[in-house]
Amino acid sequence: MTDAAIAPLLVSESRGSLVTTEKLPVRVILITVAVVFLVLFLLLPLAAVFVEAFRAGIGAYVAAITELDALAAIRLTLLVAAIAVPANIVFGLAASWVIAKFEFKGKSVLNTLIDLPFSVSPVISGLIYVLLFGAQGYFGPYLQSHGIQIIFALPGIVLATIFVTFPFVARELVPSMQEQGTQEEEAALSLGASGWKTFFKVTLPNIRWALLYGVVLCNARAMGEFGAVSVVSGHIRGKTNTMPLHVEILYNEYSFAAAFAVASLLALLALITLVIKIGLEWRYADQIAASRRH
């Protein structure tokens, strides 16, 4: 082969690095656009929460989050999450067991229905329970005559929270369990293990990281939910105010420093959630099938 024949090949070879990427100035511009957009729209609001929280000084910050109504709000938020999250864990385990381990008619419909609450506005998620249990709702008169209060009380807040966090655990567990298949369970059963023992000793260990992933996301939403809870809570200070609702009340009373102080606790929860989420994604990427699924 002559030099003249090789020359064009060399030229295209030297251009090889540019063939599947952009020129340096384009790369720099695109990275700058992405960074500026993320800083402007995501980082700045987060920073604002903490700056505003400490604007009035550490003393005011501590006073705001240890004030009686704030403590009551924190307690209520923890209580609601402590009921709603386990309820959705049990549901998630049952639903994923059915969907992942069995073949039956209507499975895809069931799978779709589980995601339904994600496409419902938070306000509607609260509204539906008011229509059922509110003073003029379908069961309102019955509940009233029996002295049972659901709306503007803890049960309503719990129901609305369960609704908005409904799919979180199940949608992480279903793909994870599907990937595990049924062979290990069949082996355990054929060796004489009972159904429950198989579930706790074989299935659960296999899906534990996916479960934790779903629980962390479910908990974050349960503690931070605003719209749905706002509709059913009645905003009774010290009684039916969760943390996000307490933030709203303080903000609307122009107690900005106090509002942001309580908000900073929720922002901290969000940051902890993100750290755990990313830690799980990096470490157990293979077991958390859902982390890159859409």
């Binding site: 993320l38 719209g227 993100l274």
Partner: peptide, 20 residues
């Protein structure tokens, strides 16, 4: 950080955006 809006309670985002 892209996931922040999924994790940050909406009321917190709301008041933060408003002061900004």
């Amino acid at each position: 950080f892209v996931d922040l809006p999924f994790a940050l309670p909406t009321a917190v985002a709301g008041i933060a955006l408003t002061v900004l």
